[in-house]
């Protein structure tokens, strides 16, 4: 049987990239800032979103997509704050993909200003998948250690914003926020860096102001 070579030269994640581009176009057209939040499990993604929901109630319309391997626990926490939320359970997959997010978009209320997408807790795989977000935030919590940015470079090089969380624990741990920040900036000099605590409220107002500015940069169109 004759053989032939077929030149393809196609990105292996092309179908994800196309789905992500469609999501980005739709959300920006609707004037919605999409924020992809990535971190290790337990770094405080949901707690941060709960505090943001409390502080922006009545002044900013937010909505949340929760990605987890199993359970609706995080969605229930967010809904308890009066914020629309949808759970995507991946059933084992270590990251969200754009098509999963795309299925939720028709449910997102038109008045939404910021749509947070809380990725599956994992500092590795989510970094490889564009979800159609305009802003990617990576969280690093004090108990994880200040040496993580260079160990997991892709999460930190693809994000635009870094949030060092659990600042209330800094005095109790050998975590040096200046070292974590410097290491992340070495990888990605353009990162905006914030330090927060979901317990004391430190840094939350600054982070929320940053999110509002990013939302205002979007020019909605028809």
């Amino acid at each position: 049987m004759p053989k032939k070579d077929i030149l393809v030269l196609q990105d292996l994640l092309l179908s994800n990239a196309q789905a992500a581009a469609a999501i980005r176009a739709e959300l920006e057209g609707r004037g919605i800032l999409a924020v992809n939040i990535m971190s290790s499990p337990g770094a405080g993604k949901t707690s941060l979103l709960e505090r943001i929901a409390e502080r922006t109630a009545g002044s900013l319309k937010i909505a949340v997509i929760e990605g987890d391997i199993e359970t609706e626990r995080d969605t229930e926490r967010i809904r308890a704050k009066g914020v629309p939320a949808w759970q995507i359970t991946t059933g084992g997959a270590c990251h969200l993909e754009a098509k999963m997010v795309g299925k939720v978009l028709p449910s997102v209320p038109p008045e939404t200003e910021i749509l947070f997408i809380e990725n599956v807790g994992n500092l590795v795989c989510p970094a490889g998948y564009d979800l159609g977000e305009r802003l990617r935030i990576v969280l690093l919590s004090a108990p994880e250690g200040d040496d993580k940015p260079k160990k997991y470079p892709k999460a930190f090089t693809t994000a635009q914003t870094l949030v060092l969380t659990k600042a209330d624990l800094f005095p109790h741990l050998p975590f040096d926020p200046a070292k974590a920040k410097a290491e992340a900036l070495e990888l990605n000099p353009k990162l905006d860096v914030f330090i927060t605590s979901a317990v004391t409220g430190e840094g939350l107002d600054e982070l929320i102001a940053h999110l509002r500015r990013k939302r205002e940069e979007i020019q909605p169109h028809a």
Partner: peptide, 9 residues
Amino acid sequence: LILEKIEAE
């Protein structure tokens, strides 16, 4: 992360 080519019968 690219599919460069395929050889097929």
